[in-house]
Nucleic acid binder design. Structure first.
Lengths: 143, 143
DNA sequence: TATTGTTATACTCTATAACTATA
DNA sequence: TATAGTTATAGAGTATAACAATA
């Protein structure tokens, strides 16, 4: 068994997680980007600028992602009224349903990746992953 | 501090790793896909079909990735001689240099993500990540 | 003038289907 | 006929730059 450096091990873990997540999203006819967007608006409308910042993407990239997601009937743009420059994004009923289905499936199927570990090791990994993610990217609990 | 489910914690960890890796690749003027390709051919030529299987992508998708990478002067196609259908892919000098630079940078900078952990926790995470990655995706040690 | 969001354009990545050349 | 690889086409994602409307 080759000694694998820490960096490579993290990268390998990330790859298997990403691959499984993409599959889960695809099973619900979603791309990962759209699933993430839905997750952030499923509990109430949010401004475009706020979403772009949370997603770590430029506002124009978000605008294009929203275009595609809106075309699928999963979200819709709304005017805010007070400031007429502002657009808020809300989920549709179909979007909310999809978001919750993916979220449940992530919780159910992603942990399978660690099925080869002992229960104690799984708990360890759970805690360490949460700790690193929280430190590097605070306020980002999304499927 | 919100209780984060295991699936969400894994996803959060994967996101921060992926983001950092993409940045490291970009610092060397590479995309993650191209860096991965370079990594697989940097120690000797490989057949297209073999590469496609290793990368988990269809052979036509690989052909296109190779097109872009070859256009940048990082790899080049060679005929195998024996079977004239076969094409082998080799790195150029520039490609080899880039591959090794990225590889070194991954080893140097990716572990920083875990800098908030104790040395013991880092060792734990290292072992657990390597174990899960090896089980889910054997033979895949690549930057 | 500064801010919010969009449009235009370009490039990467990946997928499906149809294709060429060799075996 | 089967295999190795390519080409055509399309859609998703993201980036930069220029733009429109509102404050």
């Amino acid at each position: 068994m080759a000694e694998q450096a820490f960096g490579e091990a993290l990268l390998g873990l990330s790859h298997v997680i990403q691959r499984r997540h993409t599959q889960i999203c695809a099973d619900h006819d979603l791309t990962p980007a759209q699933a993430q967007l839905l997750c952030m608006v499923k509990d109430g409308p949010r401004r475009m600028a706020e979403l772009a910042a949370s997603l770590g993407m430029a506002k124009n990239a978000l605008s294009q992602l929203v275009d595609r997601t809106e075309r699928r009937g999963l979200v819709h743009r709304e005017s805010d009224g007070n400031d007429r420059r502002v657009i808020t994004l809300a989920v549709t009923a179909a979007g909310k349903e999809a978001a919750e289905a993916v979220h449940a499936d992530v919780a159910r199927r992603l942990p399978d990746l660690a099925e080869g570990l002992s229960p104690g090791d799984r708990r360890q990994l759970h805690g360490l992953a949460a700790s690193v993610a929280a430190e590097q990217c605070p306020g980002r609990t999304c499927s």
